[in-house]
Design a protein around this nucleic acid. Structure first.
Lengths: 104, 104
DNA sequence: GCATCGTATGTCAGTTTTGACATAATCGAT
DNA sequence: ATCGATTATGTCAAAACTGACATACGATGC
């Protein structure tokens, strides 16, 4: 993905997800947005299942509640790195990640 | 993963892969290293299969040959973001990514 | 009403990642 | 052995990401 386009998208306030390709997104861009959304949702449900608050998760991964919120909102300002690290911190396995990405 | 540990690992010149958990790596750290290695190798073989040089791939993703080399070496200085974007740029699907991560 | 708890959103300085460049190392082919 | 092409490794300013903080929003209970 072009850095320019990423920036433009972010500036425009993109956070959506599966509905994000209705305008000029290249296929790769759309896929990336999609993947981010899937990981975000996986994180959200996994955390919920463990009855953990965003603040608790934040502590566990040495981050902050606001960043966790952004992660779960699939905000364009969070990296896949952080999302994946968070999922791992909640006990996700490689297979879990794969499932989250591939879509069940 | 702790930022401190990441930094230590990087300073120590970590690039290995599956054999990287022989010392103080937490399970999550080891998993992350493992995942990076798997994506790296997927990128490498996918690029090879398309008979593309690192320089060509670099151009396509608006990056540089050196960074592509680092990606394929699973260098600790490259993000999963970039690896995944590169794979997508080579036509990988979500399913392809999932397979690469889950390990066939 | 109004607290409390969890979540969302915005901002920003500090840190990490990036592309670019230089340069070395490999590997064929001549 | 000397190209020529491809890949590896190091460095660094610029760009992106991060944690922390402030603060707002929404429930739920009192």
């Amino acid at each position: 993905m072009d850095r320019e386009k990423r920036t433009r998208l972010q500036a425009a306030g993109w956070k959506v997800g599966s509905a994000a390709d209705f305008l000029g997104l290249s296929p790769e861009d759309a896929l990336l947005v999609d993947i981010r959304a899937r990981l975000a949702s996986a994180l959200s449900t996994r955390r919920a299942k463990q009855q953990m608050t965003q603040a608790e998760l934040a502590r566990r991964i040495h981050s902050s509640q606001s960043r966790v919120a952004k992660m779960e909102a699939a905000d364009g300002s969070v990296s896949l790195d952080l999302l994946i690290r968070s999922l791992l911190a909640l006990g996700a396995t490689r297979k879990d990640l794969a499932t989250a990405i591939a879509g069940k």
